[in-house]
């Protein structure tokens, strides 16, 4: 496969001014806004229509765990951007280190979410079928968790086999890290809204 197969991986396209990857990821993120938008809309619809919406005391969602997870994701956003900045500064070793930290933080988020939140909830019979609240809670945070898992897979790829690209085309690799970062920041951004909606309000 020659480079001709994928044009504008590094140079910006003359019409959009963007390299193809960036255009692609932004179109994807635009569709993601609609996906999560539909769910947030559903949440509002269910909540305003339900006179028996559970209170904080009833949902048992831990504000400390939610806060720690928020801080973990925010930290992973800065480590992600540091990975891209390291690529820009021609330091692949540092970039890989930051990517590893990002993936580690993402895994920490998942471990907290599954072991301290989902698992005890399910054990207490608080499953999606129990109430409208748990249905939308598991749907939205579950979809978000799937996005985290997807992000970890992509980041792991760029630490491992995907990093070979750095040797042949460092600029292309840097751009791919930037696109990964855009996705990752979006996942963080979704959580920024999920946290107050489920834990604080």
């Amino acid at each position: 496969m020659s480079a001709e197969v994928l044009p504008y991986t590094v140079k910006p396209h003359p019409v959009s001014g963007l390299y193809s990857g960036k255009m692609g990821i932004w179109l994807f993120l635009a569709s993601e806004v609609m996906l999560f938008g539909a769910l947030f809309s559903t949440y509002i619809f269910l909540r305003v229509g339900d006179p028996a919406w559970p209170s904080h005391e009833e949902t048992h969602l831990s504000i400390p765990i939610g806060t720690i997870n928020t801080l973990i994701l925010i930290t992973s956003s800065i480590t992600m951007v540091m990975a891209w900045a390291s690529c820009k500064m021609n330091n692949i070793a540092k970039a890989k280190m930051w990517l590893t930290v990002t993936a580690g933080l993402a895994l920490a988020f998942l471990v907290l979410k599954f072991s301290l939140e989902y698992y005890p909830k399910i054990q207490h019979g608080n499953v999606p079928s129990k109430s409208t609240f748990y249905a939308i809670y598991f749907t939205m945070t579950g979809l978000h968790a799937l996005h985290i898992i997807g992000g970890v897979a992509v980041i792991a790829y760029f630490i491992g086999p995907g990093a070979k690209l750095w040797k042949t085309d460092p600029e292309y690799y840097t751009n791919r890290i930037e696109c990964t970062g855009l996705y990752w920041h979006f996942v963080d951004l979704v959580w920024i809204f999920l946290f107050p909606v489920f834990y604080l309000l």
């Binding site: 959009s16 001014g17 255009m23 806004v33 609609m34 938008g37 809309s41």
Partner: peptide
């Protein structure tokens, strides 16, 4: 960022806001 992204995102933002108003 480039104009193209702003274009795409303003479309998203418009429909997102529309979605938020549906329940209302």
């Amino acid at each position: 960022e480039k104009q193209f992204i702003y274009g795409v995102l303003s479309l998203s933002a418009f429909f997102f806001l529309l979605l938020m108003f549906v329940p209302v």
